[in-house]
């Protein structure tokens, strides 16, 4: 861990300084030096923790997963819009218990967040890898109950779940 300290420190400083550049909006010398000093300080304080959950996080495949999730969000938004605007309000709310086979803790967090982010389903409780999900009707919960979302995440985290 000690050997990667400078590399990690420089990466953190650059990331923080980019954030400063976007948010400050003042580009005279005084503010640039101030921002750089602050970035170095914060990066120095935060570098060297050995078990950061983001170290083995598959950012690349995560970026490939997000367009699929966005498409699902649009589709289920339209589905929910139809349900709400229907005068007879044809909802069939239900609680679904779902046992996931994902092992990576990050994968479970991303699955819970994806479920909540999709309109029509919301994660009520996560216990180990058992999900309690509230769905507004049967179609809304389909992605989860058929294991479609989980298969995608198993690919993102390269897990063998025989789904």
């Amino acid at each position: 861990m000690k050997s990667s300290f400078p590399k990690q420190f420089i990466a953190n400083t650059l990331a923080l300084f980019c954030g400063w550049l976007v948010l400050s909006g003042k580009y005279d010398n005084f503010h640039l030096v101030l921002g750089f000093t602050a970035s170095c300080g914060v990066a120095w304080l935060n570098t060297g923790f050995p078990h950061s959950p983001f170290q083995q996080f598959p950012w690349g495949r995560m970026v490939l997963y997000s367009p699929w999730l966005f498409l699902r969000i649009v589709e289920s938004s339209l589905h929910l819009t139809k349900l709400i605007l229907n005068p007879s309000l044809p909802i069939k709310p239900r609680l679904i218990t779902y046992r996931s086979q994902l092992k990576h803790r990050g994968a479970i967090v991303v699955l819970g967040n994806s479920v909540t982010l999709t309109p029509g389903t919301i994660t009520v409780e996560i216990n180990g890898n058992t999900f309690l999900v509230h769905a507004i009707d049967e179609a809304a919960g389909n992605d989860l109950t058929t294991g479609r979302m989980e298969r995608k995440l198993a690919w993102v985290f390269q897990e063998d779940t025989n789904l």
């Binding site: 649009v74 938004s77 929910l80 709310p93 909540t116 982010l117 999709t118 919301i122 509230h134 809304a140």
Partner: peptide
Amino acid sequence: PDVFSRSHAVSLTDSL
């Protein structure tokens, strides 16, 4: 009707 299904409507605000 209830808090759980209303939260779905609210999540529509967040997403689209």
